[in-house]
Computed example of a mutant assay.
Amino acid sequence: MTTTGKGLVTSESSAALTAWLASLVHNHDSASLAELRRPRVLREPHFRALWYSPTEAQREVYSQVAFLFAVYHQGRSKPTFGYGNLGEAARRIGSETQRGPANPGAARLVDRIVSSRRIPWRHLQHAVARLRACDQQPPSWARLVDDLNRWHDRKARVPYEWGEAFHMPPARAVAESPAPSSAAAALQKETTT
């Protein structure tokens, strides 16, 4: 297990996949990245992505995240590891005036993603393409792998977490919460006595 910047733990296999994908961008291996963007024709880079999958059942996720990574990095010279979950990343979709939940297209896209019973690969591709077009950071690739591997785990509640991260404003720190007004404090004192 590897810890990310926010203290979230990602699996070693998802971190290893991300490191390998980042090395393709760093080393300007555009041929391998182009191959990963062609998911219908399996070649060496596809099988390399599958090597990182710890189980047979997780292979599709590793392969598809490699595809999404390659889509995002098309024409880029520096790797982007991303941050946050997909819901947090989708808050960055849009223009300066309409970003995240204020952007109707982004809101519809996230609603389609989080309401899907099966992993919504086509909508995820669209979200990554929108982030790329807006020149915004993608989600953490390692976390995306782990989240998608837990998609059907009802206790993990991945779609709910993504929807909440997109639609809810970021939590404020306790220090930022306003102090109760003197009237509110007096009212509270009267009700307790």
Results as ranks from 00 to 15, higher is better:
Arg130Leu: 13
Ala102Ile: 00
Leu144Asp: 00
Gly84Asp: 09
Pro178Asn: 06
Pro169His: 15
Gln137Cys: 14
Ser140Gly: 11
Ala179Ile: 02
Ile93Gly: 01
Val158Asp: 04
Arg112Gln: 01
Leu17Asp: 01
Asp153Arg: 01
Thr18Pro: 03
Gly82Glu: 04
Leu148His: 04
Ser140Asn: 15
Val110Cys: 02
His152Pro: 00
Lys189Pro: 10
Arg99Met: 14
Val145Trp: 11
Trp151Ile: 08
Ser115Phe: 00
Pro138Asn: 07
Val65Pro: 05
Tyr83Asn: 07
His123Pro: 00
Ser14Ile: 07
Leu148Pro: 05
Arg38Pro: 00
Tyr83Met: 03
Ile113Cys: 00
Arg38Gln: 13
Glu164Arg: 14
Ser116Thr: 03
Phe47Met: 14
Ala183Gly: 00
Ser13Leu: 09
Thr4Phe: 00
His46Leu: 07
Gly100Ala: 05
Gly7Asn: 11
Asn27Ser: 13
Glu88Ser: 08
Ala127Glu: 01
His152Glu: 13
Leu131Ala: 10
Gly84Phe: 07
Ser95Asn: 11
Pro45Glu: 04
Asp135His: 15
Leu68Ile: 04
Arg59Val: 04
Gly7Asp: 04
Ala185Glu: 15
Arg118Cys: 07
Asp153Asn: 12
Phe67Lys: 06
Gly105Ala: 12
Asp147Gln: 03
Leu86Trp: 01
Glu35Met: 02
His73Met: 10
Met1Tyr: 14
Arg143Gly: 09
Asp146Val: 06
Ser11Phe: 09
Ala133Ile: 10
Ala102Thr: 03
Trp151Met: 10
Ala173Cys: 02
Phe166His: 02
Phe47Asp: 13
Leu144Met: 06
Leu17Thr: 04
Pro178Trp: 04
Ala107Ser: 12
Ser23Leu: 08
Ala90Leu: 01
Gly75Ile: 02
Gln125Arg: 12
Gln137Pro: 13
Val25Lys: 07
Ala89Lys: 08
Val158Ala: 00
Gly94Lys: 04
Tyr72Phe: 15
Glu60Arg: 07
Pro139Leu: 03
Asn27Asp: 14
Arg43Gly: 07
Pro54Ala: 02
Phe81Glu: 15
Asp146Leu: 04
Ala90Met: 03
Asn149Val: 08
Leu86Asp: 01
Pro45Ala: 03
Gln58Asn: 07
Ala183Tyr: 09
Arg154Gly: 08
Gly7Lys: 14
Leu109Val: 03
Thr80Gly: 11
Gln74Val: 07
Gln125Glu: 15
Ala142Cys: 12
Leu109Ile: 03
Ala90Gln: 02
Gly84Lys: 11
Val158Thr: 03
His152Ile: 03
His26Tyr: 09
Leu109Met: 11
Glu164Ile: 08
Ser115Asp: 14
Arg92Tyr: 05
Ser77Thr: 14
Ala89Gln: 05
Thr97Trp: 09
Gly94Trp: 03
Gly100Asp: 05
Ala34Gln: 05
Val25Arg: 05
Arg143Ala: 06
Arg112Leu: 02
Pro138Thr: 03
Trp51Thr: 13
Pro54Thr: 07
Trp151Gly: 05
Gln136Asp: 11
Arg143Glu: 03
Arg108Gln: 11
Ala22His: 12
Gly7Leu: 11
Leu109Cys: 04
Leu109Arg: 01
Ser53Glu: 07
Leu131Phe: 12
Phe166Leu: 04
Ala49Ser: 08
Asp146Phe: 08
Glu12His: 15
Asp146Gly: 04
Arg172Phe: 03
Met168Ile: 06
Pro79Cys: 08
Phe69Ile: 12
Ala66Leu: 06
Asn85Gln: 04
Cys134Asp: 15
Arg172Ala: 13
Ala186Asp: 13
Tyr52Ala: 12
Asp146Pro: 05
Thr80Arg: 14
Ser182Ala: 14
